[in-house]
Amino acid sequence: MPHDHHDHLSPSGHPFRADDDVPLSYWQTMEIAVRELLIAKGVTTAREIASQIEAMDARSPANGAAVVARMWSDPAFCAQMRVDASAATREMGFDVGPMKLIAVENTADLHNVIVCTLCSCYPRNLLGLPPDWYKSRAYRSRTVREPRRVLAEFGVTLPDGVEIRVHDSTADMRYIVIPARPAGTENWSEDALAALVTRDSMIGTGLPKSPEGG
């Protein structure tokens, strides 16, 4: 019979993904009910909710990359970041809100990596929404226990002489990793430097791109 495994593959060769046409969960129903009530009672408007979602979606790792590039280029800004990273980034237009920001800097013998074991605290004002893996139990439980194996799975293998420092974002602080500035980028503009800074390099699970385009 023709009912073999090919029936489950799309023309591009990938498995078809089941539609998520399942009933709403209790909390999804609750969220819709509360949202509709807030609009019906004039507490908020559909427009306000939509613009808040747009504002959340507009934040991207480009914000964090601009901060990193400026730290690499501007010693006065760098000094300010070390004293009060919340204020320094707020001046650039990236408000961390009621939380506080700490920038942790990678050096030749120190590599920082960020995790939130209790939930999914993430510097959203600088990096946008967290990737799904950041919120997974595997990443959250393994990063504090075997960070070198986790980093190796991301393609980052560090020599034994480099200390790994894991930052568990347990309370009111938010963290951004400042990767070390790649060699061979002297006299580069801030915009050119920012293009080397990846999201994962600011979480600590990656390194900046190589200036040769690697």
Binding site: R145, E146, I164, R165, V166, A171, D172, M173
Partner: peptide
């Protein structure tokens, strides 16, 4: 609120992946 630095050896004992690596938490 205090940021406290621990060694992996202190947290995981003999099971530590690299005993001298560190972890900081609030």
């Amino acid at each position: 609120l205090l940021r406290v630095r621990f060694t992996m050896a202190e947290i995981w004992g003999a099971a530590a992946e690299t005993p001298t690596d560190t972890l900081e938490a609030e």
